[in-house]
Design a protein around this nucleic acid. Structure first.
Lengths: 225, 225
DNA sequence: CGGCTGCTTGAGTGTCTTCAACCATTGTGG
DNA sequence: CCACAATGGTTGAAGACACTCAAGCAGCCG
């Protein structure tokens, strides 16, 4: 793993340009710049020029949109390996923040062509990642538009477990607030639904309520519809 | 416009392979196969091999997902010029049907590389169309997750007017049912909200309730948040 | 005409939200 | 070291928004 500089202060914008990554290896990985993000630190904001795109190295990043009155929708949580922040136009269409301390690699958008030419594997990874993002968005629209609270939570837990390569246990990287804004619910409904799941034996809640055991995956999958 | 064969029967799957388009012109447009779709005719189904992707020539196409109990979410309505049906994997992740009689061009997915090489303009169109689809999906997630019925309808009308290049009038290509399944509402709520908009002078409903005048665009945009 | 489809309208219900209080944990400063 | 505030989470009661169920209306076509 390459050395990474800690961002100067929490909530400050990390200065990408100032932190050069290690020299590019001639094989495999293309050059990128490593960035460390503190919890809730903003990587980029909606409307900002989309100079870079990113890949998560460790931790979790959320991308979200805001309504004028503060209502928030979290488009996606990005886990290690995920690529995000590529845009059709010159500006970012959503903002990105670290859910908890995280490390990301930044790549210049302008060097996209060169990157994919010199590192075809990276290019494929990038394209498939983009299409996967689109697929996730489409699946998520079904969830947001047509599922009820129980189904939303069940889908969310199963999906997260799978993406974290876990069989029957999830260590939530994000808090209730983020889950609510991702699923189109309120924090109270998220909490209530989880405790109801626990009461009826579908899951088991543990220490600090961030650790969840998927006790009855069959029942959860049934809710997943 | 190229000659197009009518599909044999309504509801029957159009036989793409049998209908060759006109010979490719040496300039501009790449070769494709023209297809005519009757109202509600299915172009492809969820889970089906993604052998082709498509561009709308005339009419409107909807792409949608279904839940096991029949609940439906319409991902998007595709208007003339829009490209849809490109997938990350070998299978379609949603189904596509004609909202009303429509014409589409079908392109072999396998010839994608050649197409973009020989017709760079088409390639750019394709990439930008894909990214636009992603953007629309992200905007739509905000709508589905965080907007109420009035805001959903207002956003929908304004968006549709813009995409149809109209200033203050929309000729709805789809029926209430489709609107409901697109916005995560029921048909009754769509109807009620439209009549309420009409009563309060935001819009004017006309003949057959498919024709809508956007009377007070300022108020509608305000609801758009 | 009668049946069909698409749309509207009404009444009653339910799910989720809102508002509010409370609890647990953590970190800080006197 | 403890009091205190701050943060994140849970729980309860009341209310609202959208849904469900049901009926009715308008246009269309055989």
């Amino acid at each position: 793993m390459r050395p990474a500089l800690a961002a100067t202060t929490t909530q400050a914008r990390p200065a990408v340009a100032m932190m050069q990554g290690a020299a590019p290896r001639s094989t495999g990985e293309p050059q990128g710049v490593s960035l460390r993000l503190a919890k809730d630190e903003e990587l980029f904001a909606e409307g900002e020029p989309a100079e870079y795109f990113y890949r998560v190295v460790s931790g979790t990043v959320r991308t979200c949109k805001l309504l004028s009155d503060g209502r928030r929708q979290i488009d996606a949580f990005h886990l290690p390996g995920d690529i995000f922040g590529i845009e059709a136009c010159a500006e970012h269409r959503f903002s990105a923040e670290a859910v908890a301390d995280a490390t990301v690699m930044a790549y210049r958008r302008s060097s996209l062509d060169r990157l994919t030419r010199e590192h075809p594997a990276f290019g494929e990874q990038l394209l498939s990642s983009m299409l996967r993002n689109l697929q996730r968005a489409q699946d998520h629209m079904l969830l947001l538009g047509r599922k009820n609270a129980k189904e939303k939570i069940a889908s969310f837990l199963l999906d997260l477990a799978q993406r974290l390569h876990e069989r029957d246990h999830v260590e939530l990287p994000m808090q209730r607030n983020d889950i609510a804004d991702h699923l189109g619910l309120t924090i109270e409904t998220v909490s209530r639904t989880l405790t109801e799941f626990a009461r009826s034996g579908l899951i088991a809640l543990a220490a600090g309520s961030r650790s969840i055991s998927l006790v009855d995956k069959v029942a959860l999958k049934f809710l997943n519809a």
